[in-house]
């Protein structure tokens, strides 16, 4: 019995290591590739660790200094190299758009969810189910009309357009999560606060929101990740550095047959830093948010 237990433990640990490798190796390889010269990456088999280590690729993206390794390869890569230089601006656009969407979700989403959780009014059920079922419509089905709306509003190629679209796409989930969250909180505190002279709004701000902080953190993280990751609508409505986000930029670079693979790797590394930091810091909230919201659907 004891030996059997030990064996199963060994198997479990082996499975865990395998899982860890399957998750981590692709990430580690991209980091390694981004620190290599183009010739290192083309070796067969490739050099797993950068040899020599070079930060020239990053240097190029941020300062425009062409890595010596490319200068030798001639003009072939001129178009791509320029695209890669725009990445810092794309990162800035992405973070600005995602942060704005988070703020809108926290403001409008909180107010609406609090109303749904605590008030009774005509049409409430209809409004609630309309907001939720709106997400069943596949993005591709509404892509063209959404483009027309944005054009009509004169918002093509603007960050505002992305903020509007992403807010419309994230608010339903935010309201769903927060409504469940608010409903799970006891009313007593709010009522006590109101008896003590707090207004309803003050009760929301000082009593309910601190209690709901984990839920707010979860919806904040979700709406950030969604907006930061979104590709189709960014691809359709953006056209210049004014609003292009990171996914659009790295997709454009990567489907270019002339693309330098080490620069593509740099692009990926830069694109995943923010979501990885966010997912790591907010892991508990993301997990519990996912579980409580989807678990009760």
């Amino acid at each position: 019995m004891k030996r059997k237990l030990r064996l199963s433990r060994v198997l479990l640990v082996a499975a865990a290591i395998l899982l860890g490798l399957v998750i981590a190796l692709p990430f580690l390889w991209v980091v390694s590739a981004s620190l290599q010269t183009e010739t290192g990456i083309f070796r067969r088999p490739p050099s797993w660790l950068p040899d020599p280590v070079t930060i020239d690729n990053y240097g190029y993206v941020f300062t425009g200094k062409i890595p010596e390794a490319y200068a030798a390869r001639g003009l072939l890569r001129s178009t791509v190299t320029q695209e890669a230089q725009y990445l810092p601006i794309g990162l800035q656009n992405s973070v600005m758009v995602a942060t704005s969407v988070v703020l809108i979700n926290l403001l409008l989403g909180t107010l609406a969810a609090y109303t749904f959780a605590r008030e009774r009014f005509r049409g409430q059920a209809a409004a609630f189910s309309f907001i939720l079922t709106s997400r069943l419509l596949p993005g591709m089905a509404v892509a063209i009309p959404t483009y027309m709306i944005i054009r009509q509003l004169g918002l093509l190629d603007s960050k505002t357009a992305l903020v509007l679209i992403y807010s419309a796409f994230t608010l339903p989930f935010t309201i769903w999560v927060l409504t469940l969250y608010f409903r799970s909180l006891p009313r007593d505190y709010e009522e006590a606060a109101q008896v003590d002279g707090c207004t309803r709004f003050q009760a929301l701000r000082h009593i309910v929101l601190p209690l709901a902080a984990p839920g707010l953190a979860a919806v904040g993280a979700f709406s950030f990740l969604f907006s930061y990751d979104e590709f189709l609508f960014a691809l359709l409505t953006t056209s210049s550095l004014n609003s292009k986000t990171v996914p659009v930029m790295i997709a454009t670079i990567s489907v270019n047959p002339d693309a330098s693979y080490t620069l593509i790797a740099v692009g990926i590394v830069l694109s995943i830093i923010a979501p990885i930091i966010l997912a790591t810091i907010f892991r508990r909230f993301i997990t519990s948010g996912l579980v409580s919201s989807l678990g009760r659907a």
Binding site: I23, I250, I272, T287
Partner: peptide
Amino acid sequence: LLPWAIPLVSAGII
């Protein structure tokens, strides 16, 4: 959580 958190586009290019 990490493969799920990064942009789908980034995962695809990886």
